[in-house]
């Protein structure tokens, strides 16, 4: 067996066994949040990392997925679990519209359009009170009191998402996505319908992000526009997860999610209560410093520059001897 498959097997077994060994709700919760970020980060990476269409508006699809699940409960009296079915598809429908508008633009202009799109959706969710209850948000009663069902469901979703993207990148779609990223004009001249394939990438990305949103509604039991349509906490965080972990690598967003959620939580809890309370305000600053560090020294992220990190660590050891 290859070294990478062994690593994957060990990580898989560890994650499957973790909640059985560690009964703490707190650590289970952190991992569930991490899994959600694995899904969002991987989806963002498919569109931005592989297809080269950098989105600053992934909160659109997360929010739409979450609100689909929430509105099914408040307006239609259905279970929020139906959101897991519809959330992804409604997010795709929205993505079709977003793509229709934003793909007229290339490069930074596309990024800016998605940024504006995210804000538009946040404002719609805030002001369309008949549908969304506005700033009051949506509160539902979670199905399970135990974290275990949520843990395994989100773990399964994250694994499925990574696997799906892995398969896509080994197919014609994958080759077309990276060709578009490298040179859109060359891609067109090679018979690639760039408009179509950019939209396919966006739709797949939106589907998984919407699914993550619907899961979030089910799990957290509460959403409001400032949470699920947030520029900072969703759209920008998705980018950070991708960049820190490694853009255009399969496992990059997973590693990035672990690092970012870990870091966020460390600060939010003021180093687990060891540091003075004001430290919790510092996470945005640290995120900023981290991004600067990664861009300067690990331009391909932790996974993309893993060999470089290994070399550096080994060299340091050699010096000590």
């Amino acid at each position: 067996m290859k070294k990478s498959s062994i690593t994957l097997l060990i990580v898989g077994l560890f994650l499957l066994g973790f909640p059985l060994a560690v009964h703490s709700n707190y650590y289970q919760h952190l991992l569930i949040i991490t899994f959600i970020w694995v899904i969002i980060g991987s989806s963002w990476n498919l569109l931005a990392g592989y297809t080269g269409q950098v989105s600053f508006g992934h909160a659109i699809f997360f929010g739409v997925g979450a609100y689909t699940a929430g509105i099914l409960v408040t307006k239609l009296g259905m279970s929020a679990w139906w959101g897991m079915l519809f959330g992804g598809f409604i997010a795709m429908a929205v993505a079709l519209f977003v793509g229709w508008v934003c793909f007229r633009l290339r490069g930074p202009y596309f990024a800016l359009a998605t940024l504006a799109g995210g804000e538009i959706f946040r404002l719609i969710a805030t002001n369309w009170e008949e549908l969304t209850d506005g700033m009051v948000g949506i509160l539902i009663i979670p199905t399970f009191r135990s974290k275990l069902p949520y843990y395994y469901l989100s773990l399964g979703l994250a694994a499925a998402c990574i696997y799906a993207i892995h398969r896509i990148m080994k197919s014609k779609w994958g080759y077309y996505f990276v060709s578009i990223r490298e040179d859109q004009d060359a891609a067109e001249s090679l018979g690639i319908n760039t408009t179509l394939y950019k939209n396919i990438s966006l739709l797949v990305s939106a589907f998984f992000t919407g699914l993550a949103g619907a899961f979030y509604m089910n799990y957290m039991g509460f959403i409001d526009p400032e949470v699920v349509f947030s520029l900072h906490y969703i759209s920008i965080m998705a980018i950070l997860v991708g960049i820190v972990g490694g853009v255009a690598t399969i496992m990059g967003p997973a590693v990035g999610a672990l690092v970012m959620v870990g870091l966020q939580e460390t600060f939010r809890s003021s180093f687990f209560g060891l540091a003075p309370a004001w430290v919790s305000q510092g996470h945005a600053l640290v995120f900023g410093l981290l991004v600067i560090f990664v861009i300067m020294f690990l331009a391909n992220g932790i996974v993309g520059d893993w060999e470089k990190i290994k070399r550096y660590v080994l060299r340091r050891k050699a010096f000590r001897i």
């Binding site: 080994k170 197919s171 014609k172 080759y175 077309y176 990276v178 060709s179 490298e182 040179d183 004009d185 060359a186 891609a187 001249s189 090679l190 018979g191 690639i192």
Partner: peptide, 24 residues
Amino acid sequence: VKPLARLSVLDNVTAAAFCRVNSI
């Protein structure tokens, strides 16, 4: 010239070959 710069030569040509065939 417009090579797909970061892709290998093989991947460059493979991407083009998908014009006529569907399997990798």
